[in-house]
Design a protein around this nucleic acid. Sequence first.
DNA 1: GTCTATATTAAGATAGAC
DNA 2: GTCTATCTTAATATAGAC
Lengths: 224, 224
Amino acid sequence: MTDAATTPTPDSLRPRTRIQQKNREAILDAALGVFARDGFAGATLDRIAAEAGLSKPNLLYYFRSKEAMHHALLADLLDLWLDPLRAIDPAGEPVAEILTYVRRKLGMSRNLPRESRLFANEILQGAPRLQGVLGGELAGLVEEKAAIVRGWSAAGRIAPVHPKHLFFSVWALTQHYADFDAQVVAVLGPEADRRWLDAERHLMQLFTALLTPAPGLFKQGGAG
Amino acid sequence: MTDAATTPTPDSLRPRTRIQQKNREAILDAALGVFARDGFAGATLDRIAAEAGLSKPNLLYYFRSKEAMHHALLADLLDLWLDPLRAIDPAGEPVAEILTYVRRKLGMSRNLPRESRLFANEILQGAPRLQGVLGGELAGLVEEKAAIVRGWSAAGRIAPVHPKHLFFSVWALTQHYADFDAQVVAVLGPEADRRWLDAERHLMQLFTALLTPAPGLFKQGGAG
DNA sequence: GTCTATATTAAGATAGAC
DNA sequence: GTCTATCTTAATATAGAC
């Protein structure tokens, strides 16, 4: 079955010419930067137009409103954002699985800081446009992964931790380096160049200490 | 020496009638809520006026501009924000000092969430009005306290950690519960009522695990 | 599809009566 | 000190030519 009118084709996937695609992407890229820095209310179409290299009315040819641009960005974001969490494998080695998760999330902070800030802005403002998704898709996925962590704790393969607060910790610690970068850089001064490397080392140490089970208790099966 | 004209009296301390004081405080209180939720650009004088129970022109009788209100809030905030960090005592028991610090910071997230979000909004936007203070007062204080932590690590009284990234971790983990409350509540669902208690337990466990030095290495002096 | 010109609304700030 | 009325600017969005 090829793509057809059977399933309602989402707006973001409607076929377009190469020029249309290119302009759409240029607009969304510019909008991402502006929304991330200035928030929804602080962002202006003038700025987005300038950064995209298009005129303001031309922006509104591609998106019917500022709101629509913001919506298009957010709609794609959560999926991307949750990829590392989805990748947690119940069959993997528990501590390694979580350390990998942390490393991936930190990598996203480093490589996608605008996305992180867009998300942070939205949540800070009470998640007016994400409420449903947070309580639905996100809560469901977290519930599923929390059960895995709970199982690992019960089996003594990691220390007993509150699974959901463990995830909060991963989010808080990794996203901090994107969202609060201005503060991180100001505090570190000349050390700031090394911040991503030092952050990774620090977070590996932190989660290893938190999760490594106390020796001699429960351990069943051992390594491998 | 009582207060006199010797030191330039800051605007926020100029003597006022009780009514003036009360209105000023009502305005700042309302402004704090609105700036925290909507960011600087998203905040409107109409909203602030409504929440303060005053007319818009009356707001501008007390503060010459929206910018001035924001400035007044930020000016007081950093001092308050850094109090728990200042309280870290080099003569205290290392792990206990840091756990106390974490507990105080978490308490501030719980009791002063608007302040936390105001601060987060500002940093998220690149700290345009705090750059100087972050690189000055904040960086200086962190440097001082980092030296203490470094000393504790060197003496084997806590595990060897990167002191500044340790502070970042405290900030990220505690402020997350204020700034991302919408997400925390959505993910926890019915558990959300217990979030502050569970967060405290989780963070105590996390920092205890991170900081407690490996037994048998270095330990000099022991308990007491 | 892209532009110039413009309608419309909202928000910061001021004037001036009381 | 506080209000109503208003000025002014800036920003979203649209009309209509090309």
